[in-house]
Simulated scan of single mutants.
Amino acid sequence: MNDENIRQLLNILSGIASYNDKGYIWMRHGPAEVEQQQQASRAALDQFIATVGEAQFPEAVLTELRSDSPIKDGSGLVYERIEAQLRTAKKR
């Protein structure tokens, strides 16, 4: 992955975590709207993976991105883990 791809992915993950942290409260979203947002987040991640190409991702990152973890994360821990893994992989 190039630097721009990494930046785009981290922006997506940051937005998801922000929404899950308090964004849904600020927006006064109920359970149905939260579910819709999570589906939209899943679609955004899947589209990003398809656009960049699966082969560009380290296996551990791809596995985590495909899990529910990034969609439900409200703490930013998924962002931090993926950022660290991508930066480490880029140095190799």
Rank of each mutant, 00 (worst) to 15 (best):
86 L>E: 09
46 D>F: 01
77 L>S: 11
4 E>R: 15
42 R>M: 09
5 N>S: 14
27 M>F: 04
45 L>C: 10
11 N>L: 08
59 E>L: 02
90 K>P: 01
66 R>F: 01
84 A>M: 08
33 E>S: 14
21 D>T: 00
24 Y>D: 01
85 Q>C: 11
88 T>H: 08
27 M>S: 07
1 M>A: 05
74 G>I: 09
88 T>F: 15
31 P>G: 02
20 N>F: 10
18 S>H: 04
35 E>L: 03
29 H>W: 13
13 L>S: 09
59 E>I: 05
85 Q>P: 08
30 G>E: 12
91 K>M: 15
56 Q>W: 12
45 L>I: 15
24 Y>E: 03
1 M>W: 03
80 E>F: 02
77 L>Q: 09
65 L>W: 00
89 A>E: 10
23 G>A: 01
64 E>K: 04
73 D>V: 06
33 E>L: 09
31 P>Q: 04
55 A>S: 08
36 Q>L: 13
86 L>Y: 12
32 A>H: 01
34 V>M: 11
40 A>M: 13
53 G>R: 09
23 G>H: 00
76 G>S: 04
24 Y>G: 05
65 L>M: 01
9 L>H: 06
68 D>G: 11
69 S>F: 05
22 K>I: 13
31 P>D: 13
12 I>F: 01
6 I>V: 15
16 I>W: 07
5 N>C: 09
71 I>N: 03
21 D>I: 00
2 N>A: 07
69 S>C: 01
7 R>Y: 07
21 D>Y: 03
55 A>G: 00
55 A>K: 12
15 G>D: 12
68 D>A: 05
44 A>N: 05
55 A>W: 00
75 S>K: 14
8 Q>A: 07
91 K>E: 14
90 K>S: 11
87 R>G: 15
3 D>Q: 06
58 P>A: 12
66 R>C: 09
91 K>A: 08
19 Y>K: 03
54 E>Y: 12
28 R>Q: 04
22 K>R: 14
62 L>G: 10
20 N>Y: 01
4 E>Q: 13
57 F>Y: 03
9 L>P: 07
57 F>M: 11
51 T>D: 06
63 T>N: 13
7 R>S: 04
51 T>G: 01
58 P>C: 03
7 R>C: 08
70 P>G: 02
10 L>R: 08
76 G>I: 00
33 E>A: 06
18 S>M: 02
89 A>D: 12
64 E>G: 08
9 L>A: 05
21 D>W: 07
20 N>W: 05
41 S>V: 02
4 E>H: 02
79 Y>C: 07
91 K>Q: 15
41 S>Y: 05
37 Q>K: 08
52 V>Q: 08
51 T>F: 15
58 P>V: 09
92 R>N: 15
60 A>D: 11
29 H>D: 04
29 H>A: 10
69 S>I: 05
77 L>P: 07
12 I>S: 01
89 A>M: 05
35 E>R: 05
45 L>W: 05
10 L>M: 06
16 I>Y: 10
58 P>E: 07
66 R>Y: 07
72 K>A: 06
40 A>T: 11
26 W>N: 00
41 S>Q: 00
64 E>A: 10
76 G>H: 09
11 N>R: 04
2 N>E: 09
14 S>V: 13
65 L>G: 00
48 F>G: 04
15 G>S: 02
47 Q>A: 15
46 D>M: 12
